[in-house]
Write a protein that binds this DNA or RNA. Structure first.
Lengths: 167, 167
DNA sequence: CAAGATTGAGTACTCAATCTTG
DNA sequence: CAAGATTGAGTACTCAATCTTG
């Protein structure tokens, strides 16, 4: 392994089969998020992260959440969320107010225009998810996707919300 | 669906089962790349994209590739690659030269120091992939991961390299 | 002073020019 | 003029201060 002369053998750290598996998974990890982002950007002019923020709020009681909880739902840092919500506020889709019960929290609330945006955007996004994930897979594979995803999440973050729900 | 008064019912675009499946997959899509990036940043001081560039070169004959081919392997734009390779060149791991057979191409070559960097970095990275993906899954699930990944890639990009390999 | 949130500086990325070679 | 590559301007992100409330 001294230097990189032509004869140097590339060490193999995964066997052939594992290599194939990893390439297939890595391709999806690298390309699927980009495809979803592209669809949202093209059809709705928002990023995937912005969509997660808006749709997270839309599914919350009163369409309102604390910034810190919203950061967990959208899987981003509080700092990133703060900057993105500023933009969403400028676009008229979200409004922030201090939490009346404890001024340290900030509540983000979806405006009526924000609700309309979610309603207008979600069907196309779900359609894309169906096209890229649900349609090409069998029912058995979809069950596997759920189990496999949860197992991996158990290692990455044992407290993740996707592990809370019973089968 | 008029406005967002408390009584407004949130339309459900996926059934319960699909929702669970999608949450599990989305969690992995959002968090696994970040975990891999964090490990590389912490242990080797490089991003995942930089790692893909270096390891792509290390597996290529003569440790050399055209920039445009390297962009495909690393799954990034040529513009992004160009800027990242400039940084890698400054760090002494890569060297660029015009292709002598056709001056429109640029060849990126791993330097000896770049080779050493890959050799020093890859085992820890592979270890992390094992810990997060291979270890928590059964052999049957790993076969599923490969098949499922390929099916999804067939829709995203029918020309992707992960689909080329037989069986 | 701890926890939530925001701000600002620096870095990385995207997208549309631009440059270069054949 | 087409294809490969780079550059520059603008945007988005990260990380380390800073601010604010209890």
């Amino acid at each position: 392994m001294a230097g990189h002369e032509p004869s140097a053998e590339q060490p193999r750290w995964l066997d052939d089969d594992e290599q194939q598996t990893w390439i297939a998974l890595a391709s999806v990890l690298l390309r699927l998020p980009g495809s979803l982002d592209a669809q949202l950007q093209r059809d709705a002019g928002i990023s995937h992260f912005e969509y997660l923020v808006l749709s997270g709020l839309s599914m919350s009681p009163e369409q309102t959440m604390r910034m810190s909880d919203l950061a967990v739902v959208a899987e981003g840092s509080l700092s990133r969320l703060s900057q993105v919500v500023s933009r969403l506020e400028k676009r008229g889709w979200v409004r922030r107010t201090p939490d009346p019960t404890d001024g340290r929290y900030t509540l983000a609330a979806l405006t009526p225009a924000g609700w309309d945006k979610v309603v207008a955007t979600a069907p196309g996004h779900v359609e894309e998810v169906r096209r890229l994930v649900f349609d090409p897979l069998t029912r058995a594979q979809l069950r596997q996707v759920r189990d496999i995803g949860r197992r991996i999440m158990t290692v990455i973050d044992p407290n993740d919300r996707c592990l809370e729900q019973g089968d």
